[in-house]
Design a protein around this nucleic acid. Structure first.
Lengths: 177, 177
DNA sequence: CCAACTGTAACTATATTTGTTACAGACGAT
DNA sequence: ATCGTCTGTAACAAATATAGTTACAGTTGG
């Protein structure tokens, strides 16, 4: 599946803002943490702003912050803001309408895919940005939490130079009955 | 999301074979119903064969059929056979490890994505190919069901001779948002 | 006015899936 | 045994989507 990382990046971005707690973040700072280009972040921030998840301010001393409290933003909100379509697609070209299976498989599949999408949405609706931040906290020292530049004061070191390796995803084993 | 249609096509292919009921289908026949190239189908059949969902036979009079009864093939089996990764991905490049959020967001996200994947798998595990065929049947006249070539009786008239006309987007009308 | 931001357009680069052509090898029929 | 009909696969082109880059207009605080 050619899954996109848009959802992961969007959650990351908003988590930074929840972490920064009202202080507006610049796209450059966010980009540094996400390890990408600032324009990529600004593009995504525009989408998030359209869904009323963040507010941005132009001009000097500008930046973006959450539009509401982290506990009032669910992962479903984020998902719907940045991922346009459902989890699966139907055929790229419509099947042969002269075949008894081909003419109807789309309807049946749509039913299945809607069930899948609903299941995904139910899971995402049950977690808020606040939950994400909570899960994050135990992992880091919370000593210098406030007022610290989010990404890293000066130049990114380890992540930017040289080869990068994608962290493998440990996949959950199926639950065949 | 750049979802692939592999799952949809795989379900379609296997449904054809369930419908054909033991009679081996040629890749060309299947391709005609799916409205694609026979090699695309053969590639997919190889994957399905590796997961022991179909058996194929080379040579004249060859073809492919289900490896077991339709009620013993779940949509999860099909999903796992043709879709390699989970529903979402993490960042394309790892986040900045010098950022307190960046260094840990991957772990948190993996937890979320695993929950999503599990939810998807639970849904898919609860439907078999037999169910798909059942949902299909009410849509078509079942009169000439048995012993009829799947794609279209003889000569495959409309769909095969001459230019294959692109059937207008009648198909996926239900815009899966 | 100036410096520091965002918003956006217009590209290029990269990755993945899909479509196509070509061909070796298997196999049934004659 | 050889011939026509299949599958399995390689190799490559086309299509699509995402990500990354450069450039610049417009906004805002100082």
């Amino acid at each position: 599946m050619s899954t996109s990382s848009r959802f992961a990046v969007a959650v990351h971005v908003l988590t930074l803002m929840a972490w920064a707690d009202e202080e507006p973040l610049k796209s450059e700072q966010v980009a540094e943490s996400v390890n990408t280009n600032a324009v990529v972040i600004r593009r995504m921030l525009c989408e998030l702003a359209e869904s009323n998840l963040v507010v941005s301010q132009t001009g000097s001393m500008g930046g973006s912050k959450l539009a509401r409290l982290p506990e009032r933003i669910t992962l479903l909100d984020i998902y719907q803001a940045v991922e346009s379509r459902g989890v699966f697609s139907l055929h790229r070209h419509p099947p042969n309408p002269d075949c008894p299976v081909g003419v109807n498989i789309g309807t049946v599949l749509n039913g299945v895919l809607d069930e899948v999408d609903s299941a995904v949405e139910r899971v995402l609706a049950n977690m808020t940005l606040r939950d994400v931040v909570s899960r994050l906290k135990p992992c880091v020292s919370t000593a210098n939490r406030k007022g610290v530049s989010v990404a890293n004061g000066k130049g990114v070191s380890a992540a930017t130079n040289g080869k990068r390796k994608q962290v493998a995803r440990v996949h959950s084993v199926s639950v065949r009955n």
